[in-house]
Amino acid sequence: MKEGPREKPLGLDMPFDEAFARFLGTDPKEVSENIERGKQKRGPPKQPPPVDDESPD
């Protein structure tokens, strides 16, 4: 399980069925374009810290 602080839940100001219908109607090409645009603004993603392979005794 993931450790650390939990993310705040996504708050939507609409009913679930409307949000789900909008999600299903999203064009995958549009989503990938927005992801690429976001990467250009923020730069490369942060790398996670290295993990020690040694287990505690």
Rank of each mutant, 00 (worst) to 15 (best):
M1W: 06
M1E: 08
K2L: 09
G4W: 00
P5M: 11
P5S: 14
P5D: 14
E7P: 01
E7K: 14
E7W: 09
K8Y: 04
K8S: 09
P9T: 05
P9K: 02
L10W: 09
G11D: 07
D13R: 12
D13Y: 09
M14Y: 02
P15M: 09
F16E: 02
D17I: 00
A19P: 00
A19S: 10
A19R: 01
F20N: 06
A21Y: 01
A21T: 07
R22Y: 02
F23A: 08
F23R: 02
F23T: 06
F23G: 01
L24G: 00
L24Q: 11
G25L: 01
D27H: 04
D27M: 04
D27Y: 04
N34W: 12
I35P: 00
E36T: 12
E36M: 13
E36C: 08
R37Q: 13
G38F: 07
K39S: 10
K39C: 13
K39D: 04
K41W: 03
K41E: 08
R42E: 15
P45Q: 10
P45M: 05
Q47E: 15
P48V: 04
P48M: 07
D53C: 10
S55H: 12
S55Y: 13
S55M: 15
S55Q: 15
P56S: 12
P56Y: 11
D57P: 06
